[in-house]
Amino acid sequence: MSKLMLRHKAKKIDHVAIAVLDLEQAIGYFSMMGFTLSDRMTTTGAHSAMHSAVMEAGPIKFVLLEGANETSQITRFINEYGPGPQHIAIEVENVESLCKELEKQGLDFSTKTIKGPELIQRFTVRCPNSGVMIEFIERNEEEGFSEQNVEDLFRQLEASDAY
């Protein structure tokens, strides 16, 4: 398969995750523009924790991420790359098939496939130039996020000391 495969496999940008210094301040900022807060979550791993907020405006979805402590993956990301886009999720039809093809092309991944009842995900390694990860996501009609998937992601990233 050619290197143009994503052109034919991508459905849309599902969401953009943004690492922020202050979650409440970021919620206020996006609310001023008309985004609404649709979900909040706190995720805790063995060594790391984060608070997140999903902000939506029509079809646009931003997930705001704040590190809960100094060892948080999000805090470490901000210390390395600064606040801003942490990952971009691209919805595709078949995560596992696409990722197999991308691995054959030489793309490395930070996680194994994460499977939950509502969605399937896999995250690339960070782009060394921008710090951004790409998440490939396959949804089963649901638009939300599975706490189980987020916790699995956290565990996988902690195990490899990735952030």
Rank of each mutant, 00 (worst) to 15 (best):
E151T: 11
I18G: 01
F35A: 01
P128N: 04
D152S: 11
Y29A: 09
A68C: 05
D152T: 15
K61Y: 01
N129C: 09
D108M: 14
M33S: 13
D108F: 12
R139D: 00
N69I: 03
S97N: 13
N129I: 12
S2W: 08
H15R: 03
V132T: 09
E24F: 00
T42M: 09
E96C: 04
V63W: 02
E158A: 00
I78C: 02
H47N: 12
E151M: 08
Y163Q: 02
I120Q: 08
A26E: 11
I137K: 04
G58C: 05
F30P: 05
G34S: 07
N129W: 10
Y81F: 15
Q105I: 13
L65K: 04
S160Q: 14
Q148S: 09
I134D: 02
V63Y: 02
L23C: 03
C127Y: 08
E24L: 03
S2C: 08
S97I: 11
Q105M: 14
F62C: 00
S72D: 00
Q156M: 08
L157R: 09
F154Y: 13
D108P: 10
T43G: 08
R122M: 10
T36Y: 14
L64S: 01
S130C: 09
K11I: 14
T43K: 07
D14T: 07
G28Q: 13
E138A: 03
V16I: 15
H15Y: 03
I90L: 10
R126Q: 15
Q73F: 04
P83V: 12
I13R: 02
E135S: 02
P83Y: 10
K115T: 13
N94T: 09
S48K: 08
A68P: 09
Q148C: 01
I78R: 08
S110K: 11
E147D: 14
F145L: 13
S130M: 02
I27M: 04
V20I: 04
A49C: 12
F145C: 05
R7A: 11
